[in-house]
């Protein structure tokens, strides 16, 4: 579990800032023209992109779930509900990963 957490943390650290700042801040603010739809589709349909993105989503979500589980417990003194909190957090991460798999390998 911890290997997934720290691996995910590293992936999130390296990958997410660039993507989110570009696609969530720079492009919506109009500082840079939105990428062409056909170009994005081509990049996303490349098999290696799909696999990498799925791995990135899975690792980041597991990382987030694991960390948030302990944040809730320590920050709000909820250690006695650990079982329930852990179940909810990890289920959410798995659901998100399943959605990512569906989007990347079925929808696209």
């Amino acid at each position: 579990m911890w290997l997934l957490f720290s691996g995910g943390g590293m992936v999130a650290a390296l990958v997410l800032p660039a993507l989110l700042i570009l696609l969530g801040v720079v492009v919506p603010l109009g500082l840079l023209g939105a990428p062409d739809h056909a170009h994005l589709l081509a990049v996303l349909r490349f098999p290696l992109t799909r696999l990498t993105l799925l791995a990135v989503c899975f690792l980041c979500l597991v990382h987030a779930a694991h960390r948030f589980r302990y944040t809730l417990q320590d920050g709000l003194k909820l250690t006695r509900f650990d079982g329930a909190i852990a179940t909810v957090c990890y289920s959410a991460a798995l659901l998100g990963s399943a959605a990512a798999a569906y989007l990347l390998f079925v929808s696209l």
């Binding site: 999130a12 997410l16 993507l19 989110l20 696609l23 969530g24 739809h37 994005l40 589709l41 996303l44 993105l53 990135v56 989503c57 980041c60 979500l61 990382h63 987030a64 779930a65 694991h66 960390r67 948030f68 302990y70 944040t71 320590d74 920050g75 959410a92 998100g96 959605a99 990512a100 989007l103 990347l104 929808s107 696209l108």
Partner: peptide
């Protein structure tokens, strides 16, 4: 530690974008 929430949101946002592209 709270950054974990935003890591989660960033992934969701990117997935929404992928859904839109699809």
């Amino acid at each position: 530690e709270l950054s974990s929430l935003f890591v989660g949101w960033a992934v969701v946002y990117l997935l929404l974008l992928i859904r839109a592209v699809a």
